[in-house]
């Protein structure tokens, strides 16, 4: 997993509450055998017309949103189905940070497993940020996980909370496998003394 210590990127604003994971990645794409490549199906039914053409009015389809890697969402983001595909889709599309006044539990945890940082900020603060962004006062943001602070390119600083274990895992790019790899030396030592029949040859 790619570590996240500090991330600087373009922000896209999504003013919808209760965005559920069915919307983030519709069910027809869950049959896929891979975990990557979901980005093109992200928000599929909102993002595309039934004929497959991009829907110009959708947030991610605007000129200004191109290349965004930080999603400023609204309340109860990621609710509904537990599908991790939702995070895979956001991640594959290019998002590293999701900021919202509240984020559904399972989705929240799934984010950490996939190198995406979910940040919960105050609803009022979120609304003001969205409004100033809409007025064109700022475009980009720096998210500093180490110091637990985010800063817009017009100089607004906002502190945020994060669970210390999750922070540690994400800053070091550790998932379960990452944790096991901390015992790399023990694994190597084991392999060095392993019996011949334990190999396949």
């Amino acid at each position: 997993m790619e570590p996240l210590v500090k991330h600087e990127g373009k922000v896209v604003c999504m003013n919808r509450v209760n965005v559920d994971t069915d919307q983030i990645i519709p069910k027809q794409f869950l049959k896929r055998i891979e975990r990557d490549g979901f980005g093109e199906f992200l928000f599929y039914d909102w993002r595309y017309e039934p004929n497959g053409n991009p829907r110009p009015s959708f947030e991610l389809n605007t000129e200004r949103a191109q290349g965004a890697s930080i999603l400023l969402a609204d309340a109860n983001f990621g609710c509904g189905s537990s599908r991790e595909h939702a995070v895979w889709a956001l991640q594959d599309y290019g998002f590293r940070v999701v900021i919202a006044p509240s984020i559904a539990d399972i989705f929240f945890n799934n984010c950490f497993k996939n190198g995406v940082l979910p940040i919960v900020i105050d609803q009022q603060v979120r609304n003001e940020l969205a409004q100033s962004h809409e007025r064109g006062e700022w475009e980009r943001m720096t998210v500093n996980l180490a110091d637990q602070v985010l800063e817009t390119d017009h100089g607004q600083r906002i502190a945020f909370d994060v669970d210390s274990h999750k922070k540690y895992m994400l800053m070091n790019g550790l998932d379960d496998i990452g944790l096991t790899l901390q015992y790399q030396a023990e694994i190597e030592a084991y392999e060095a003394k392993r019996k011949a029949y334990q190999f396949v040859y």
Partner: peptide
């Protein structure tokens, strides 16, 4: 196995012991 291999790709990992 497909999602497991995809997981490796995603995290840019390799198979530790392909011969096992």
């Amino acid at each position: 196995s497909p999602q497991a291999f995809a997981g490796l790709r995603f995290a840019n990992r390799s198979v530790r012991q392909p011969t096992q």
